[in-house]
Structure formats: C-alpha cells, structure tokens
Computed example of a mutant assay.
Amino acid sequence: MPEIAYFLATTDHPISQTHPWWNRPLPTSRLDQTGPSGPLDATAITYGSYFQAVSRFCAASRWQRVLQAASHKMEQPLSEEDLERVTIFLEKHGSFYHPARIEVTARKKRISLVANVATTAAGRKNVLREARALQQLNEQRPFGWVPTVYAMDMDEDGLPMFLGDWFDGFHEFHLTVKNVAIEPRIVVWDGKADPCLLSENQEAVLYRNMAMILTACYDPVTTQQIFPWHHAAGDFVVRLEKERTAVKLITVRGYRPMNCTGATPTNENEMLDMLQAFFLHLTLRMRLDRIDGVSEIAWAPDRCLTPVIEGFFQGLDLTARLSGFPEAFPRFFCQYLKQQGKTDLRDRAAEITKRVFDRHSEEHQIIEANLAHHIDAVSRLLTGWPA
C-alpha cells in the first residue's frame, strides 16, 4: 500500500487528525477564505471528513481508479505494487467543488490528478452533468482542452466526486488593478510572492485562445455550448512558456443547447441568428471578471476585443469544418454580422443580457453601464474585419 499524506495547498501546511482544523467545517465558497471560525456545524463537511473521503475514493478496489489514470498518463501499465506515495492537497474552495490535487508517485515518476469533490448542494446537483459533459467534449473535440474523466462515484458519506486530469504548470489568472489611474491588467496566480503580470501580447494570446476554445466547442447545428462559464471562478487556466501562452478549460458545468427547450435551428436564418447570439454573449462575458478573483466585478479593457473576435473566427472555422460546413462559412458569417446595424446589435445584446444575467446582479449592472460603448467597439472592429 502506498504512503498517504494530506496537505493544505502546499507541503508547508500538512494536516492530520491532530491539526486544529481537522474537525472544522470547510468554507463554502472561494469568497470565504479566511479560515474556520465561530461555532461548529455538526452537519458540515469538515476538513478531516473531506480528506478521508478523497482517500477512500482513491484507494477503492485496490487503487484501481488511480492506477487506471496513472497508467494512461504515464503510458505504461501499473499495478498496486508500483504505487509508492499518494499525496492529497486541498487546492481551493469553490461554490461547486472543493478540488483535491492528487500527486501519485509510481516507479519513481510523479503525475498529478484532480478529485473534484461536490461538497455543496449546487455541486452535487451538477457533478454528474459535468462528468458527462467532459466525456462528451473529449470525444467530440479530442484536442486536450478539457480534463479527461477517469472515474466517478459517491463516497460512503454521500460525497459525489470524479477523478480527472490536473494540468501541471497551469494557473488561475484574473484582472487586477495595481494603479487606479490605469486600466486593469491580468495577473497569473502562480504562487510566487510577486505575481506575474501579463504583457499586452500575452493577454491577447490568452483572450484569443479562450474565445477559440469556446467557439470550437459550439455546435452551430444543435447550438450545444459550454455554459455557464466564469472568469471569476477560475474556469480557464494558463501556462506561460517563454513566448508561448497555453490555455486549458478545467471545468464544464454544462454542455447543452442554447435554447432552454432543446429545440434546434430549423433553417439557415435561425442558425445564423443563434450563432450571432453566441458571438455577442461571448464578447460580453469575456469582459467580466472579479478583481483578483474575489473582489468587485471588473470590466476588461477594449484591447481584449480584437483577440476575442480573432479567436471566435478561428474557432468557428474549426467547428464549421467538423460539422461539414463549406470552407467559406466563417467569411459568410462575418459578412452577415457586418450587415447588422449597430442599433440591431445593441438591441440583441441588451436582450441577451436581460435573459442571461440576473437583473439585480453586479454583472448585469456593469454590462448595462458599458453596453453602448461595447457594441460601438465591436461594430467598429467588424467593419474593418477581413472578409
């Protein structure tokens, strides 16, 4: 049997049954990161029960889940005797999941996995849907953009979770404000004392890749799309390698038709109309984040729009080819967008905002305040876009 160890985020913070937090409840969201305080809730998931549940999940059936995943990632068959050490880290507190990073050492090699543990009501309601969505996307878009799901089960304490890929070297990023006199910039949460601020070129690559992934996963025929997604929740992660900026999407809470009834477009006009709605929603949501991931809602600067539109058309080219569309379809849709009047685009964007965002939310308010300028900028960019 491999050696098992538990840690809070890093090896500098080991935790065991003697730790003062072992019997304390987990925070319920990323906005509550100050640590446990106040009276104990007997019904809450504690740190101790969390680590024990993840450990049981991994060790079940003589470690078969971990062995299957590790064999896949190491590209060689492994047995229980090959496992040397399993280290479980509590990475962060989310409104859906409390992800555990699992370091597996076997045959002197080390790989990383993730157990997404649904500790909240929202997470438990969504966990099976997410696992299925990830499996579907990996089958339809096998480009390594999202994690592979290796196993899913319900712990004996009633905690559902699934085992997937952990993307080593990838980190969260968020808009930040270092100087109130300048526009927000993107900072990468790489664990360093002095976080990495992206250059404008790196930001552009990041926005382009995110828009490309989301659009390439949109199906114009069925209107299936990845939704919801949020920058503030850290759905995308980035790895910086010199001039290369690699992007992954670590969670897919849903993959379903744009129309809540499941109805698909019945003709070309309906298909173009729904693709336009996807495009406008993409440009709006790409601009939303929280300052440093946990503070007030932030609106990304106009400079993000050019790479977002570039990424959209790159993704549209790929998804159109996968759907059997003519090679000229992205150019055709570009002309379709150009023919829309600015007023029509603004009205459609306002309609989408009303339908998608709660009218009392910060997101809705900041979109309303910036919508006219946003559509002016998008319309101006489209006018000069290559045909």
Rank of each mutant, 00 (worst) to 15 (best):
residue 47 Y to L: 08
residue 283 T to L: 14
residue 272 L to A: 04
residue 134 L to S: 01
residue 107 R to A: 09
residue 382 L to R: 08
residue 274 M to F: 07
residue 270 E to I: 11
residue 35 G to N: 02
residue 290 R to W: 02
residue 279 F to C: 01
residue 62 R to N: 12
residue 262 G to D: 05
residue 319 T to S: 04
residue 164 G to C: 09
residue 267 N to D: 15
residue 109 K to S: 12
residue 161 M to W: 05
residue 100 A to L: 13
residue 1 M to P: 14
residue 355 R to C: 07
residue 54 V to Q: 11
residue 269 N to C: 10
residue 305 L to D: 07
residue 254 G to N: 10
residue 111 I to F: 08
residue 167 F to C: 01
residue 19 H to L: 09
residue 71 S to L: 13
residue 275 L to Y: 02
residue 363 E to I: 11
residue 106 A to V: 11
residue 350 A to H: 12
residue 245 T to Q: 07
residue 26 L to H: 02
residue 59 A to E: 14
residue 185 R to W: 01
residue 123 G to E: 05
residue 349 A to H: 03
residue 222 T to G: 03
residue 285 R to K: 15
residue 250 I to V: 12
residue 21 W to G: 05
residue 42 A to L: 13
residue 137 L to V: 05
residue 213 I to Y: 00
residue 73 K to V: 15
residue 223 T to G: 03
residue 8 L to P: 01
residue 220 P to I: 09
residue 148 T to M: 12
residue 238 V to C: 11
residue 158 G to N: 14
residue 185 R to L: 09
residue 303 R to H: 12
residue 18 T to K: 10
residue 315 G to D: 03
residue 336 Y to I: 11
residue 66 V to C: 10
residue 374 H to M: 10
residue 138 N to V: 14
residue 137 L to K: 02
residue 162 F to S: 06
residue 68 Q to P: 00
residue 325 F to K: 09
residue 257 P to Q: 10
residue 299 W to T: 01
residue 166 W to L: 07
residue 168 D to G: 01
residue 216 A to M: 12
residue 172 E to G: 11
residue 236 F to L: 01
residue 354 K to N: 08
residue 34 T to K: 08
residue 265 P to K: 06
residue 385 W to N: 13
residue 113 L to S: 07
residue 147 P to H: 04
residue 162 F to P: 10
residue 281 H to V: 11
residue 210 M to E: 07
residue 283 T to D: 08
residue 261 T to S: 13
residue 216 A to T: 04
residue 150 Y to T: 06
residue 269 N to V: 13
residue 376 D to G: 02
residue 340 Q to H: 13
residue 318 L to I: 15
residue 317 D to N: 02
residue 10 T to R: 07
residue 78 L to M: 12
